[in-house]
């Protein structure tokens, strides 16, 4: 699925990154970075409500290409800047975690674990 489709499905605001043709095949949702680091293998996108810099660091360590903050959360400029430096696209959506993940799943995005 192209990033542009994800932005549309989630009615998301793009905070950094401009490659809307980027392909995202798998995603995961977690507010616990510990769990993300332990269980994620090759997902390209993280949906989270955690807006501190460690969400970006976690995505970076896991080679993820996109973070989407849910529940309308807006990260600080420092967090967006860190993501920009590391080449990670940042989105924010008003949808809650369950709804955001559900919309993407319904449209064909998978978790990579099934």
């Amino acid at each position: 699925m192209k990033l542009g489709n994800i932005v549309e499905l989630l009615d998301a605001k793009v905070l950094c990154g401009d490659d809307m043709d980027m392909e995202i095949q798998t995603a995961c949702g977690s507010d616990m970075m510990s769990d993300a680091l332990a269980f994620i293998e090759d997902q390209a996108m993280l949906l989270t409500g955690l807006i501190n810099p460690q969400s970006v660091r976690t995505a970076e360590m896991l080679d993820m290409r996109c973070i989407c903050f849910v529940r309308g959360k807006m990260p600080g400029d420092d967090v967006v800047e860190l993501a920009r430096e590391r080449g990670i696209t940042v989105l924010t959506t008003r949808y809650r975690m369950f709804s955001a993940c559900g919309k993407l799943y319904q449209a064909g995005l998978r978790g990579g674990d099934c």
Binding site: D31, M32, M33, S34, D35, L37, A38, T48, L50, N52, Q54, S55, T58
Partner: peptide, 17 residues
Amino acid sequence: VRALGFGAGMGLPNMKK
């Protein structure tokens, strides 16, 4: 610490993994 997204007890096991 859990509010910051850590402290799930996965750190050392994940390092070992």
